[in-house]
Amino acid sequence: MAGKAGTTPTTYSPSPTTKKTKAPLFKDDDVDWVRPDGRGFPQCRPAFFRSGAVNAASGSAYAEFGNTKVIVSVFGPRESKKAMMYSDVGRLNCNVSYTTFATPTRGQGSDHKEFTAMLHKALEGAIMMETFPKTTVDVFALVLESGGSDLPVVISCASLALADAGIMMYDLVAAVSVSCLGKNLVIDPILEEENCQDGSLMITCMPSRYEITQLTVTGDWSTPKINEGMQLCLDACAKLAKIMRSCLKAATDSQE
């Protein structure tokens, strides 16, 4: 019944693939357009976090921002791979993958190499690697459904999972992105907005220390716009970290 390799017929999705002919979200001079989900420009989607989603892992967390749904499991600290050289500080190993049904058209469900590298870079500055010498902490993320701003959600969720696993960190890492659409900055963009953005900016930071672990800017930005975008992100990160912290507190309270 399942198509054998080689004999699987080629298939296509019946949903329209000509996205480019679709009307843009807003007209060039229109400053008062409404976002597809009715949010204001500087308004984030409601964030939901729950720690301890996977009991086989040392720590885990589930995050849901609108249609973006992510699970992150943390394993370890455990033995490093045999081929690894001796190291008196610990190692961090990350992986981000998508389910085949995460995207509107069916994907291959393969690893996302770029996000894997970005997740690693965003977290390594926050973790006290010297607390687990010779061993590795594995952070694996699975995007169950992609609804836009996937990477920031994965990073925030991963730091919550690390905290749930009891890995020592300087602070929680919160991540938020903004998209530049014409003259406007929209925070926490959904998929539709990301598809027609002129530029994007993502900040991952440790809000209580006011330190940035990663900053990415792509596309067309003017200096004042970058400043405005960064301020927006930093404010949102601080709020996000509060939500994450209350999730951790709620988890420990329910255990007692």
Binding site: A2, A56, S97, T99, G109
Partner: peptide, 20 residues
């Protein structure tokens, strides 16, 4: 028509599974 069934065990589900 046809049904293609695939079962996945991503590395998040168990300490035994590693990426790749």
């Amino acid at each position: 028509g046809c049904i293609a069934i695939d079962f996945h065990m991503p590395p998040i589900c168990s300490p035994i599974v590693r990426p790749g």
